[in-house]
Nucleic acid binder design. Structure first.
Length: 875
DNA sequence: GGAGTGTGCAA
DNA sequence: TATTGCACACTCC
């Protein structure tokens, strides 16, 4: 079989792709649909046709010989939309990175290059396949030159294929005659005029009879239709010019060798980077890679027999699977891998595991060591010695990923794609129940492969940690914190269940009562919880003026209802209904649903979720327990120490984010104020509103407080005006006034934005990093959001670093001093401890000291410690 | 039953 | 058109 050459019409296919796919953008707001679609079409055809050589032809923006000879040529054609235009250079960059051969030639169109190459390839004995959306190219088809026209359809792409015989079958003329047909009928899209009054039917008939335009004019007298003949005669020059314009030049002077068209789709590093940025995950997955080193297959693997082989001093990577008293470990160390299964009801096996995990020697590489601790805990197996948690390391390096599955770590850090994921193995949404039903071989492969991945990933992650100067953050803060969080999760927090249930009943009565009032006012019963139904009742049936809309209908949010409640009593009842049902469903029922028999709640404290470094809390979220309103406070009141011998100590940082900001910005005025414990909101009010410190009114202070808050978030005048219910102009004046009084703050925040622009990320004092790719986006909203992240992240993130370090230090001090008191909760700038009463004084001192001395900033940190018999009382 | 939306709670 | 989260109810597929 002859070799096959595939030639693409670059712009034409990009154009098809652009209009066939919705306007996609990447995180930076860059349009990507035409590039994405082009690659899809190109790869599909390459995969199907398996060509030996490939090339892509482009038009050059300079005028072609056709423009020079005929100034109307393509005169009616509209320029391409900007969204497409800007993708063309991007497409070329991507193709270049993929080493796909491209060609263009000044003075000629892509059609001419394609025609020239097709004919030349044919002469050299190749089978030629030209891919274009342009039917003009039908004229170059032959027995060995095929034209493929992709049609972007709803599902997938359908491709029409033409050889010369297909052209004849469909159009009744040969490919060459096709040119003459077009010369006579013209082509509106290219502004080729042809002969007036001659359409496709007549043109085909004439050319079928006479073979060409020239021959037609030789026999012009044979035309019997008077009008047709008249037009042909009148527009003879135009017909000949049209033919010239429609003729694809097949002898463009080109210098090339077919070697240049060699095809190697192996993903280059450059192409991978580019496609990652463009978020072409499916395309990346489709391409073969150079670095595909499958760890398990590549390394010589010696299986081992028992845990005793893992002796001290070595790095041992492990994965685990647990289901109903059966623990299976996949281990990788010293070029050995293996999998061992343990029956945890057997005391000898438990002893083996206790020895193994209790060994202080060596380094244990574990993915999600907190979870493994939970698995081992009921069997009194404790993990000792140094742990390198790949879950945490991967998060520090890329804190905005959605998940950190081992299979993704293999992909991202080792360039290995085909590692089985838990979800892939067990099926979506399945629990570990299915694990033990799998074949032994499957389980062995799964665990050993993943252990091997961690073994290899360890070196890469370790180096990344070092390259990013995150050693202190990782080894001294995040890793020790894992154990702190584990202990907090195990300890849990006690809730007065009886009182919680009683409160639930109380709420039920209130809800029923207020619902009746709402139904009476509405004139019918409906679901108040449904924003849709509520919107209809309020804004249609009752004709209350709608203030704001959401993308699906009327907004019924509290801020909207607040504005309406004076004129419409029903609105106040709806707000009350919302408040009561919120408390009942989220807090009373929600908390009861996760309560243990010991009346305890064990939340999960997640260390790999937030973009800024904060800890998050789930099942339940204990970081959003109500505090502001009286009704809500009653929930907080029900969180109590686990026994009479204990009391709560609650410690919270005073204005930690503003202090961090003052320190980072090196603003002496703010630093002095904080160091002298001056009320910061009063100071801001005095500065911004030009009133003496002593004369600041409560309203002024509260407004200044809102300004201070806003500064930390990268506020705009609009939002501040909404918040304070003032005009945008006034709000803008506040912000301007603030920056005038604190110019260093402004410099600092601007500096954050420009740092992000230059580096693509921002960082905290402990070098915690967050990528902000959208900082250079073209889309205004996206870019502005990026700026706010750039301003807020170093502040919020540094505060997170500080409290995390404080938690580690407090936890360590409690252990070292042999105290019974325990940290049980963290809420971003607050720690809640359950304190053994005899230790109260000592712990209060220790707590305040460790928190205030966690780091050395330009500003002092101040911690308030309160005690109480419940969480509310301790605030 | 899962995904998306609206809503509301916290720092 | 202010940062970071999580959870609930409803709606639609």
């Amino acid at each position: 079989m002859n070799k096959k050459i595939l030639l693409f019409d670059g712009l034409s296919i990009a154009n098809r792709a652009f209009y066939g796919i919705p306007l996609l953008t990447n995180k930076e707001g860059r349009y990507t649909n035409a590039v994405y679609g082009f690659l899809n079409i190109m790869l599909s055809i390459i995969e199907k046709e398996k060509p030996d050589l490939v090339g892509v032809a482009f038009d050059v923006s300079a005028p072609t010989f056709r423009h020079i000879q005929c100034e109307d040529y393509k005169g009616t054609r509209k320029g391409m939309p900007q969204e497409l235009r800007e993708q063309i250079p991007l497409l070329k960059t991507v193709l270049r990175a993929m080493n796909i051969h491209m060609m263009e030639k000044e003075g000629f169109e892509a059609d001419d290059l394609l025609g020239t190459l097709a004919k030349s390839g044919e002469r050299d004995g190749y089978r030629m396949v030209v891919v274009s959306g342009d039917r003009d190219l039908l004229q170059i088809t032959s027995e060995t030159i095929e034209l493929k026209i992709p049609k972007t359809k709803q599902q997938g792409t359908e491709i029409e294929s033409y050889y010369a015989k297909d052209v004849e079958a469909k159009y009744e003329v040969t490919p060459l005659e096709f040119i003459d047909v077009k010369g006579l009928m013209g082509d509106a899209s290219d502004n080729i005029k042809g002969v007036p009054g001659v359409g496709e039917k007549t043109a085909v008939k004439l050319i079928k009879t006479y073979g060409s335009i020239e021959n037609l004019y030789e026999h012009i007298d044979e035309i019997t239709q008077k009008k047709l003949k008249e037009n042909l005669v009148t527009y003879k020059d135009q017909a000949l010019e049209s033919k010239m314009l429609a003729t694809i030049v097949c002898d463009v002077p080109l210098e090339y060798t077919w070697d240049e068209f060699n095809l190697d789709l192996t993903l280059t590093e450059e192409a991978e980077e580019l496609m990652k940025n463009l978020e072409f995950k499916k395309i990346i997955a489709r391409l073969p890679r150079a670095s595909a080193n499958k760890p398990v297959e590549q390394v010589e693997v010696h299986t081992f027999n028992g845990l005793e082989e893992v002796t001290g001093g070595q790095v041992c990577a492990m994965t685990y699977a647990y289901e109903a008293d059966t623990l299976e470990l996949g281990l990788a160390f010293n070029s050995k891998v293996g999998r061992l299964s343990f029956n945890l009801t057997n005391t000898e096996e438990v002893q083996t595991l206790q020895n193994f995990f209790g060994n202080e020697e060596g380094l244990k590489v574990i993915h999600d060591s907190k979870q493994l601790r939970h698995i081992l805990y009921p069997y009194h197996i404790e993990i000792k010695g140094q742990v390198f948690d790949t879950f945490i390391a991967a998060y520090l390096i890329e804190p905005t990923n959605e998940t950190y599955e081992i299979s993704e770590i293999a992909d991202r850090f080792l360039g290995v794609q085909n590692v089985e994921s838990t979800e892939g193995l067990l099926g979506k949404g399945k629990s570990m129940k299915a694990w033990l039903t799998l074949e032994d071989e499957v389980r062995i492969k799964f665990l050993t492969e993943r252990a091997h991945v961690l073994d290899a990933a360890y070196a890469v992650l370790k180096k990344e940690i070092e390259d990013n100067q995150m050693e202190e953050l990782f080894y001294n803060i995040e890793m020790p914190l894992v154990k702190v969080l584990f202990d907090m999760e195990v300890e849990g927090i006690k809730v007065d269940v009886e009182k919680l249930k009683a409160y639930g009943k109380e709420l039920d009565a209130l809800i029923e009562n207020v619902a009746e009032k709402v139904y009476a006012a509405a004139g019918e019963a409906f679901n108040i919880n449904s924003p849709k139904q509520l919107g209809v009742i309020l804004f249609e049936k009752m004709d209350i003026p709608a203030v704001k809309k959401t993308k699906t209908g009327y907004s019924t949010a509290a801020e909207v209802l607040e504005k309406l409640k004076d004129g419409y009593p029903i609105v106040e009842d709806i707000l009350a209904y919302r408040q009561y049902t919120k408390l009942k469903s989220t807090y009373v029922d929600g908390l009861l649903s996760v309560m243990t028999d010991e009346h305890k709640i064990h939340s999960s404290f997640n260390q790999t979720i937030t973009a800024t470094g904060r800890i998050s809390s789930t099942e339940p979220n204990l970081q959003n327990i109500p505090i502001k309103l009286e009704m809500g406070k009653r929930i907080r009141e029900l969180f109590i120490p686990s026994s009479e011998d204990y009391i709560f100590l609650d410690a919270d940082y005073s204005q930690i984010e503003l202090r961090v900001l003052a320190s980072l910005a090196d603003d002496q005025k703010l630093i002095n104020a904080f160091n002298q414990n001056i009320d910061i909101h009063t100071l801001t009010a005095s500065e911004v509103f030009h009133v003496p410190f002593e004369e600041v009114t409560p309203l002024e202070r509260s407004n200044a407080k809102a300004v201070n808050f806003g500064i930390v978030y990268g506020i705009g005048a609009f939002s501040l005006s909404e918040d304070l219910k003032i005009t945008q102009k006034e709000a803008a004046a506040y912000i301007e006034g603030y920056f005038e009084k604190y110019p260093k703050i402004k410099d600092y925040l601007d500096g954050c934005v420009s740092f992000a622009r230059d580096h693509g990320y921002v960082q905290t004092i402990f070098n915690r990093k967050r990528d902000i790719p959208e900082i250079n986006a073209k889309n205004f909203n996206l870019r502005e959001f990026g700026k706010r992240k750039a301003m807020n992240t170093p502040i919020q993130g540094t505060a997170a670093d500080i409290i995390k370090l404080a938690m580690v230090n407090v936890h360590r001090a409690l252990q070292e001093e042999g105290l019974r008191s325990k940290v049980i909760l963290t809420v971003h700038d607050e720690l809640l401890l359950e304190v053994y009463k005899p230790e109260q004084e000592q712990v209060a001192k220790l707590l305040k000291e460790k928190m205030e001395q966690a780091v050395d900033l330009k500003v002092t940190l101040s911690v308030d410690v309160h005690s109480g018999s419940n969480w509310l009382a301790a605030k």
